[in-house]
Nucleic acid binder design. Structure first.
Length: 328
DNA sequence: CTTACGGCCTGGGTGC
DNA sequence: TGCACCCAGGCCGTAA
């Protein structure tokens, strides 16, 4: 589940290992998670990797112009890119070309140092795309502020002007780019804010504290090379260490480090959310029930009552072979 | 208009 | 050994 700190860790690893390398050839495996596989095969050979940028949860491998010539500063911003999103299980690293492909390797880029840049992704929730400068510009418009750069005032304004739940806003990439479930829960715990609170109902003070908590946590997580819950690995194949510092995420049933109450889990904004029911008081009407019985009814949802639907009914509704969504 | 929910993609892990 | 089920991030269709 790579979020900003994990992607930053990978981007730094790539800068050490593939910056300046020229791509000689491309070999693709399964391509259903790529925007336009033919474009990747067609445009990448011969291009040099001139920059590795992180933008929210994705990386942009900026490519030299197709025709050999000196790039000016102006062209720098307009450079085409290979967009890499790791989804949940994506990994990318430069490898000895002689090494056999690992399972679930779906792209391999032969480099001019004899190595290969390989992308593996068991679930294929990730994304690879060749983006021309024009497509890239359009792509970047969809995203909100960088959480590490956004100023407290701007952050407060964005959060307090909307009526959705704070957790949903933290996860919304068009509000903040790069925050996912782990760092949303960790920063809410630190700021003592319940995930189901509405942004508009938070005090200026609370939002300011949240801003500070979010930045501090992200910085610390980057220093520790991210969180490895299941399978995150950096470009050296090493796990991060920030999971050892989680205070809320994944701690259901364990004691809150601050007050000793039992950390609970509830579905907020469609995602598992971990919080301390004592330090992070819920909004009125929020049912802080244990939401995960073994055979217990479905999970209690927060908000409006849910339409009843039997499991079999729900199953039969699924269309047999819905085509995977294509971005074009 | 804004916001929220349910479904879908996939395959590893888990529990029966 | 098998198998049903859950879960994850992002996106979309639908509904309120």
């Amino acid at each position: 589940m790579p979020e900003l700190p994990e992607v930053e860790t990978v981007a730094r690893g790539l800068r050490r290992t593939i910056l300046g390398r020229r791509i000689l050839s491309v070999t693709l495996g399964k391509t259903d998670f790529m925007d336009d596989p033919a474009a990747i095969e067609h445009h990448l050979p011969g291009r040099r990797i001139e920059l590795v940028e992180r933008y929210g949860k994705f990386m942009l491998l900026r490519l030299s112009p197709a025709h050999a010539r000196q790039a000016s500063d102006k062209e720098d911003a307009a450079r085409a890119a290979l967009l890499v999103h790791l989804g949940m299980t994506g990994q990318i690293a430069s490898t000895n070309a002689a090494k056999p492909w690992e399972k679930h390797t779906h792209a391999s880029f032969a480099l001019d140092d004899g190595r290969e840049l390989r992308y593996t992704d068991a679930r294929r929730f990730g994304r690879l795309a060749y983006l021309s400068p024009a497509l890239l510009a359009v792509e970047l418009l969809r995203f909100g502020a960088d959480p590490l750069e956004v100023k407290a005032d701007e952050f407060a304004e964005r959060i307090r002007s909307r009526r959705s739940r704070i957790k949903a806003m933290l996860l919304d990439q068009s509000v903040l780019r790069g925050v996912g479930n782990i760092y949303a829960d960790e920063s809410l715990w630190k700021a003592k804010i319940h995930p189901a609170k509405l942004g508009a109902n938070l005090s200026k003070q609370q939002v300011t504290v949240l801003h500070g908590a979010l930045q501090e946590i992200l910085h610390k997580a980057i220093v520790l090379r991210g969180s490895s819950i299941s399978d995150f690995r950096d470009t050296d194949g090493e796990p991060g260490a920030y999971q050892q510092h989680h205070k809320a995420y994944g701690r259901e049933g364990q004691k809150c480090y601050r007050c000793g109450a039992i950390i609970r889990r509830a579905i907020v904004a469609g995602r598992s959310s971990y919080f301390c029911p004592k330090c992070q008081p819920g909004p009125r009407g929020f049912l802080s029930l244990a939401l995960r019985g073994k055979k217990a009814p479905k999970q209690k949802l927060i908000g409006r009552p849910l339409k009843k639907k039997s499991a079999s009914e729900a199953r039969s509704k699924t269309s047999p072979n819905r085509k995977r969504h294509s971005r074009f």
